[in-house]
Write a protein that binds this DNA or RNA. Structure first.
Length: 264
DNA sequence: ATGGTAGGCGTCCTA
């Protein structure tokens, strides 16, 4: 079971790249962020033709998340607990149920999350980021109680450690790297989650390169897209990676996919 | 050198 996360920065612009990547990477489940459209504008037919069912939590112009899956799934949540109807579209959660081997039922719960950027900090946007992270942590704690394979994937907009940014000194006051942000992220991790990429890789690696200032050419990147695994998922982790190729294609997203493989 | 780029029901806002 291969599960991936990708901030596509507009599904309309990125559809050709998404279809190309689905074909070559063959993920079972993908969570997308920043689709930037409402559900009726989502290219469901094209993605279904590629073999994936879709669920969309849409929003015009900004944000928006989706889950794609080759296996049957049911959507469990379309927002975090306690969020209002008009809250930005940043969360989707589903239970994926692949065909069992020997008739054995095996499920994996997958959440797709688009955390607030939070800049400029301090300010109301940063306050919102921290409030979102607190709401998310409370829900993640509840989900852990199910003791099931669980993957929380998305654009966390958090640089966890200095080695996850090309120039930590330049990012000390940024909302993605402030001590308060990193502490909130650690609080979440310390509930018992495993970073699927870092668990298997010690090398420097990034998932995002800004469009500006030749960041991609100079490899000035950040690692801000993460797949967090519950203990039951971490026990099944056999591989993970960051697929840099799509960042080098025509009309790229500024993010590239992160993925993990679970032996269910 | 305080710039630069991308996307969107867009002449600004977000990232």
């Amino acid at each position: 079971m291969r599960i991936a996360s990708w901030n596509v920065n507009s599904i309309k612009i990125r559809l050709p790249n998404l279809l190309r990547w689905l074909k070559q990477a063959e993920p079972d489940v993908v969570v997308l962020q920043e689709i930037k459209c409402i559900e009726s504008g989502f290219p469901t037919l094209e993605i279904e033709a590629a073999g994936y069912r879709c669920a969309v939590v849409g929003q015009k112009t900004y944000n928006g998340v989706a889950i794609l899956s080759r296996h049957p799934f049911t959507v469990e949540r379309r927002a975090l607990p306690g969020e209002a109807e008009d809250e930005p579209a940043r969360y989707i959660e589903a239970i994926v149920e692949p065909k069992g081997i020997n008739g054995k039922r095996q499920i994996v719960r997958v959440a797709g999350i688009y955390f607030p950027n939070g800049n400029p900090a301090p300010g109301p946007k940063y306050d919102y980021k921290l409030a979102f992270m607190a709401r998310f942590e409370a829900h993640a704690r509840d989900l852990l109680a199910f003791e099931e394979p669980l993957v929380l994937g998305g654009d966390y907009n958090v640089i966890p450690e200095p080695e996850d940014v090309y120039n930590p000194q330049a990012w000390l006051t940024d909302a993605l790297f402030l001590p308060t942000t990193r502490a909130a992220f650690r609080g979440l991790m310390n509930l018992g989650f495993t970073d699927a990429f870092r668990a298997l890789h010690s090398e420097v690696a990034y998932t995002f390169w800004d469009y500006q200032a030749g960041a991609w050419a100079k490899d000035h990147g950040l690692r801000i897209d993460h797949l967090m695994l519950s203990p039951q998922a971490a026990d099944r982790l056999v591989a993970s990676g960051i697929d840099k190729k799509p960042r080098d294609w025509e009309k790229p997203s500024d993010h590239t996919p992160v993925w993990c493989e679970l032996k269910l």
